[in-house]
Computed example of a mutant assay.
Amino acid sequence: MNVPRNVGGWDRVLRGVLGIWLSVVAVAASLDEKRTTAAVAALAGAGLLQNAATGFCGCNALFGVDTTRDGE
């Protein structure tokens, strides 16, 4: 199945960086026994990393936002 991309350029890079940062926050919160913070940060980080890896965001599709350039 070929899913159209709607995340590109700096948006994609930013999502990757924030996804990694939130994953680190999740590990730190887990070590500090803050389970709720760890779970929320892990889920948000995983979602952003998925967006960055696939180039597709469901929310962007829902609202008609496309940050890719033609031919990307």
Rank of each mutant, 00 (worst) to 15 (best):
R5L: 13
V25K: 05
R69M: 13
G19W: 05
A46F: 13
A41S: 12
I20R: 01
L62N: 10
D32F: 07
A28N: 10
V27Q: 05
N60D: 12
A41D: 04
A53Y: 09
V40K: 00
R15I: 04
D11L: 05
V13M: 08
G8N: 06
E72A: 13
R12Y: 05
D32S: 14
W21N: 10
G9Y: 07
P4R: 11
E33K: 13
N51F: 11
A29F: 15
A38L: 05
S30D: 12
T36M: 12
F56H: 14
A53W: 12
N2W: 12
A44D: 06
A52G: 03
A46Q: 01
P4W: 02
A39V: 09
A53M: 08
V24D: 01
G9T: 06
G19A: 00
D66C: 00
L14F: 10
N51V: 15
G47V: 13
C57S: 09
A42K: 02
V25S: 07
F63W: 12
A41T: 00
R69V: 15
V24H: 02
G9N: 07
V40D: 01
G16N: 05
A41R: 00
V24M: 08
T68A: 04
A61E: 11
S23P: 03
G55S: 01
A28G: 07
R15P: 08
V13L: 13
V25W: 10
A26Y: 04
G55V: 02
C57P: 07
L43F: 12
E33G: 06
A26W: 01
E33W: 15
V24N: 00
T67F: 06
T68P: 02
N51H: 13
K34N: 11
E33R: 14
A46S: 14
R5A: 14
V40N: 02
N51Q: 15
L43S: 08
A39W: 10
G8Y: 08
A41V: 02
N2E: 13
C57M: 05
R5T: 09
V17G: 03
C59T: 15
G47T: 14
R5D: 02
V13C: 06
R12H: 03
A42C: 07
V7W: 05
G16M: 07
L18Q: 04
L48P: 05
T67W: 11
N51K: 10
L62T: 11
T67K: 05
V27H: 02
T37V: 13
V3F: 09
C59P: 08
P4S: 12
F63K: 07
S30P: 02
F63I: 14
D32T: 07
V40L: 11
A44T: 09
V17Y: 04
